[in-house]
Design a protein around this nucleic acid. Structure first.
Lengths: 156, 156
DNA sequence: GTATTTGCAAAACCTTTGCTCGGCT
DNA sequence: AGCCGAGCAAAGGTTTTGCAAATAC
């Protein structure tokens, strides 16, 4: 059965080899932000005839095709997530390393306004928040993520 | 004569060697965001008895002491700028690679509010905008940076 | 059939580190 | 003399690449 990412690959005219199909499937089932090493582990678990070089080449290719996005959360290795994941940013819990996704329309507006003030059209932007879980009892559970129309979700 | 960064080093209790003095001076005169290689070039121009290992060790040390801040603008290498440079972020011109600095109070407020909504206290954040110079004639010159109380400045 | 993709290992790249020597207190 | 910093070169971690063999279309 054809995975979501595989369909995108085909649409973009990529040759679908066995390895790419496996990697595409791993990515399709991915709800987090794995690095290449982790993708390699997951892919190799499905089909051991995959080398890490191929994973590197594939994520690079998919990034160029706009199917994947590369992230840098610090730590020296790139991490990846599927693009069709909706526009959002990340808040990294400095204590646990957990990654929480969020989006915020007002924030987007402010950024566009800043760029405009400087005489630029905003092409893209990168934003990461680093935070510490609030201790006061009033902290809402961060895991209230209604599937399908989520606003914030915890992941790794 | 003692450079601004050198003074900070002394205040923080660092031993001032000849190499550190040179690197401190280079950093004091720095208005941009050099990588280690570039710092090494500039330092070596003042005193050739400096190795790149020392530059690496020194920027690391100064970062730990809060004198320098490490940035990642993509491209695989870390770039540095003095901390006492005021709170600001960067807009990178996607066409030329030029870096424009800016700050924006409203934006800071919005970020704190987002973190609070997720139950976090904001520890720090990273923001980079990528933009394209606006073509319309109404674009203000981005170089209107009144020294001393600047709002936005172009640098590299 | 032919152009692409893979695996492997080696290389490239940035950064850190072991060790010895040099310099400052 | 004693310590800490510096230089050099080697090692470290991640990512890329050359080449021959395998594979997709």
């Amino acid at each position: 059965m054809e995975s979501r990412i595989e369909r995108l690959c085909v649409e973009r005219g990529l040759k679908m080899t066995g390895q790419r199909r496996v990697i595409a499937r791993v990515l399709s089932e991915t709800g987090d932000h794995p690095d290449v090493e982790e993708l390699y582990r997951r892919a190799a678990a499905l089909d051991s005839r995959i080398s890490i070089a191929t994973v590197y080449r594939t994520v690079r290719l998919l990034e160029e095709k706009g199917i994947l996005e590369r992230r840098d959360f610090g730590g020296g290795r790139a991490r990846y997530e599927p693009s069709e994941h909706g526009h959002h940013h990340h808040l990294i819990d400095v204590e646990s390393g957990r990654v929480i996704e969020f989006e915020d329309a007002e924030h987007e507006r402010v950024l566009a306004a800043i760029a405009a003030r400087l005489g630029f059209d905003l092409v893209s932007h990168r934003l990461e928040l680093f935070g510490r879980r609030r201790e006061t009892a009033s902290a809402p559970a961060a895991a209230e993520a209604p599937k399908g129309h989520r606003r914030a979700g915890v992941t790794r």
